[in-house]
Amino acid sequence: MSLENIGRAAEFLLVEDNPGDVRLTCEALTESKVKNNLSIVGDGMEAMAFLRREEPYTDAPRPDVILLDLNLPKKNGLEVLEEIKADPSLKRIPVVIITSSEAEQDILKTYDLHVNCYVNKPVDLEQFIKVVQSIETFWLTIVKLPSEVVD
């Protein structure tokens, strides 16, 4: 089933160390028609702590979609992606790389690591908002995702 029909707000996790980008993403999601919550972590280590509900993220919601930057302090986006996709309890969460890197090797590496999609941050604001909203629409209203296993 698509998330649109669940009735609860969609949960986004944004892994991004650049406050400007965080703000831009917030702006884009605020203008969205879909009800959503955005959680933000600033580096790769925090991202893994959040996903595994380790201190101080013990009450963290399980995200429906992860927006992951590549260039992060402490643990970069590739390492985070690799860990998510190697973790049976996390690997089904769609991971969207959203980066300004257009390097071919980054695209290859992330798809090799089973990223769900790779998106460049557009330089133009209109485009940026459009991309974020497209991601949201696509992952929240179009695709079918596996039902979350309830303990």
């Binding site: 400007g20 831009l24 300004s100 890197s101 390097a103 604001l125």
Partner: peptide
């Protein structure tokens, strides 16, 4: 190609916003 584009993008985006 990567890091230099980021701030440039910020300038552009927020000015636009």
């Amino acid at each position: 190609s990567h890091d230099l584009q980021e701030p440039l993008r910020m300038v552009a985006s927020f000015t636009q916003l």
